[in-house]
């Protein structure tokens, strides 16, 4: 298909579970503005969110109604229809479970190339260039799609959302997915259970406490930080030995070996047995009272201080920022 004449860029918007748009949508639109004229695609009610997309520069917004029963099917169909109609320069979707599925199906529909988990996209001579960080962030790979409409899923956490307010034109789009697609339908929503802590083995964020935490009561701080960051709770062998956290949470050579993107070590001096369990973390942040603690030799960022003072401040800041950003989104609108 090649680069569209209008130079538009389709952006699939995501909603937060409680309502309102995800931060990721703003980030995607920010990227889209580099490549062309952003066109927002919003599935499901309420349509009022369309105006929010205008804050980030979406001059046109297509709203697609009635997607509750086929949340991904409708999104795929809408993007495919719009792609054929508008011949955009690219389609941007936030990386995530639903996003990857929608992007993959759209790419197959359009017989297009797809690049997933991009951390950045910039315009290039032959079309948009997507940047990925691979192999434990040791390599940057830059790719551009040579066939069809480039489909990109973006790890929006690494993209800053910048506003560029416009008044969007809102158009309604009616789509009816094919019969086969309609066979897969959402039957009934099950009330979201209390947010389940991610499993230590696969969590992207691990918050661990050690001897420095001091007591089982103080260990609640660790729980709170983990919850605030949507991460899993871990403990050094002292913490589990003294009963401050469960034995399954022990991070060390005889316990769990974790590979998170972020490892936050609170009150852990960083003995070799503990390091054997978390060495593979992408980013290590440590808070400990002892400046000579070996953990600081492996930490990317270290805070020397009393964690009982530092952590409450950290918590407050995290909570403050979370009220302004979305974290996990959905396409299907309010369920």
């Amino acid at each position: 298909m090649g680069i569209g004449p209008g130079g538009s860029v389709l952006v699939l918007a995501q909603r937060r579970a409680g309502g309102g748009l995800c931060r990721s949508s703003g980030a995607l639109l920010t990227l889209a503005r580099r490549l062309g004229a952003p066109v927002g695609v919003l599935c499901g009610p309420p349509e009022g969110d369309a105006a929010s997309l205008g804050r980030y520069g979406a001059a046109t917004v297509y709203t697609v109604a009635d997607s509750r029963r086929h949340p991904t099917g409708v999104a795929v169909e809408a993007l495919a229809v719009l792609a054929r109609r508008l011949a955009p320069a690219a389609i941007l979707i936030a990386a995530g479970r639903e996003g990857q599925e929608v992007a993959a199906r759209v790419a197959v529909r359009l017989d297009s190339g797809i690049v997933t988990d991009a951390v950045d996209i910039r315009p290039g001579p032959d079309g948009p260039v997507a940047v990925q960080c691979v192999l434990d962030r040791s390599y940057r790979v830059e790719s551009s799609v040579v066939r069809g409409v480039p489909v990109f899923t973006v790890a929006t956490r690494s993209v800053a959302a910048r506003e560029a307010p416009v008044d969007p034109v809102v158009r309604r789009l009616a789509v009816r997915p094919a019969a086969g697609v309609r066979e897969v339908r959402r039957i009934a929503p099950v009330g979201a259970p209390a947010p389940r802590r991610p499993d230590l083995a696969t969590a992207a964020v691990v918050v661990a406490g050690g001897r420095g935490v001091g007591s089982r009561d103080s260990f609640r701080l660790v729980d709170q930080v983990a919850e605030a960051l949507g991460g899993a709770v871990g403990g050094s062998h002292t913490a589990t030995q003294l009963g401050w956290c469960s034995p399954e949470a022990q991070v060390d050579v005889v316990g769990r070996v974790v590979h998170p993107r972020l490892y936050l070590a609170l009150g852990i001096s960083g003995s070799v047995r503990h390091r054997a369990g978390m060495r593979a973390a992408a980013t290590i942040v440590a808070i400990d009272r002892d400046p000579a603690a070996p953990i600081f030799a492996v930490a990317d960022l270290g805070v020397v201080g009393d964690l009982h003072e530092v952590v409450p401040e950290l918590l407050a800041e995290i909570r403050r920022r979370r009220t302004t950003d979305g974290v996990n989104g959905t396409f299907g609108g309010a369920a």
Binding site: G210, R211, S236, D252, G270, A292, A293
Partner: peptide, 8 residues
């Protein structure tokens, strides 16, 4: 002089 054991 440095006596502090490293115990997590």
């Amino acid at each position: 002089t440095v006596d502090k054991p490293i115990v997590d």
